[in-house]
């Protein structure tokens, strides 16, 4: 593989974005069944729910982790060299 080539990286990005676009496109036309219909929860049947939910989940988890890191991160020799 020639990943050192900036051109290859560009192609990889382009390929990735095309893949994401295809998934979004297909998702818009697939009929989604609700998971909790009996409770009136239908948000998971909206088109693009899963892509959006996936992105938001990832985003929120990284942000929460970073916030927690501010309080809980220490140098990796914090406990000494036991």
């Amino acid at each position: 593989m020639k990943l050192d080539d900036p051109q290859a990286i560009k192609w990889l990005w382009a390929g990735g974005l095309v893949l994401l676009a295809v998934v979004m496109l297909v998702d818009a036309f697939v009929p989604h069944h609700p998971h909790f219909e009996g409770d009136g929860v239908t948000i998971d049947t909206l088109p693009e729910f899963f892509p959006l939910y996936g992105f938001l989940s990832g985003f929120v988890m990284v942000v929460v982790a970073k916030a927690l890191g501010v309080a809980l991160s220490r140098k990796d020799n914090y406990y000494g060299d036991d």
């Binding site: 998934v23 998702d27 697939v30 899963f50 996936g54 992105f55 938001l56 989940s57 990832g58």
Partner: peptide, 22 residues
């Protein structure tokens, strides 16, 4: 099922997008 596969792909690939964005 087609629905399950596409839902999982959406969830995962866009979760992955968050990684590269951040």
């Amino acid at each position: 099922s087609f629905e399950h596969v596409i839902e999982m792909l959406g969830l995962l690939l866009f979760g992955g997008l968050a990684f590269f964005v951040l």
